[in-house]
């Protein structure tokens, strides 16, 4: 059902342009990694705190508010550089097991981050147990997204 959409992406003028530009693919890859580091830093800073590790002396709300702009900068960078990789390698991705695992977990991780996790880091009322659970789930989800993302290119 989705294959025609992936084939259309693969055959688009955008894909041809990127494939004819020798540095484009590498640039998307490199900036994707840099954006991932920004995103991961901003995420971990708060998730470690939720787990009761890292910056324990600081209130969660204050840490999360400080980290949020960098979390968003990283995420926007990831989408801007991730979308072209999805489009230009669409047909290969369509038949790649790890691509679908990544997309499924990514959707879940995004919803989780901006609903449940956001709610917990917006107030200092969550108990230690709940905070630790929310932080641990966040780390595991994004760890899976990152690992499966790397595995797409290795299969």
């Amino acid at each position: 059902m989705l294959l025609p959409i992936f084939e259309a992406m693969q055959n688009s003028a955008f894909t041809t342009t990127v494939q004819n530009t020798w540095w484009a693919g590498a640039t998307f890859n490199v900036v994707h990694l840099l954006a991932l580091a920004v995103f991961a830093g901003a995420l971990l800073l708060v998730d470690l705190r939720l787990l009761g590790a890292g910056l324990r002396q600081q209130p969660v709300t204050s840490l999360a508010a400080d980290a949020r702009p960098w979390l968003l900068v990283g995420l926007v960078g990831l989408f801007i550089t991730g979308a072209p990789q999805m489009i230009t390698l669409a047909v290969r991705n369509y038949y790649n097991f790890w691509f679908w695992v990544k997309m499924a977990v990514l959707v879940f991780a995004l919803i989780y981050t901006f609903t449940i996790r956001q709610r917990v880091v917006s107030s200092d009322k969550a108990g230690r147990g709940l905070g630790a659970l929310v932080g641990a789930v966040s780390i595991v989800l994004w760890l899976v997204v990152t690992a499966t993302g790397r595995l797409i290119g290795l299969t």
Partner: peptide, 11 residues
């Protein structure tokens, strides 16, 4: 990749 992203992010 996972560990370097964790390291670079926290740095």
């Amino acid at each position: 990749v996972l560990t370097i992203v964790m390291f670079a992010g926290l740095i």
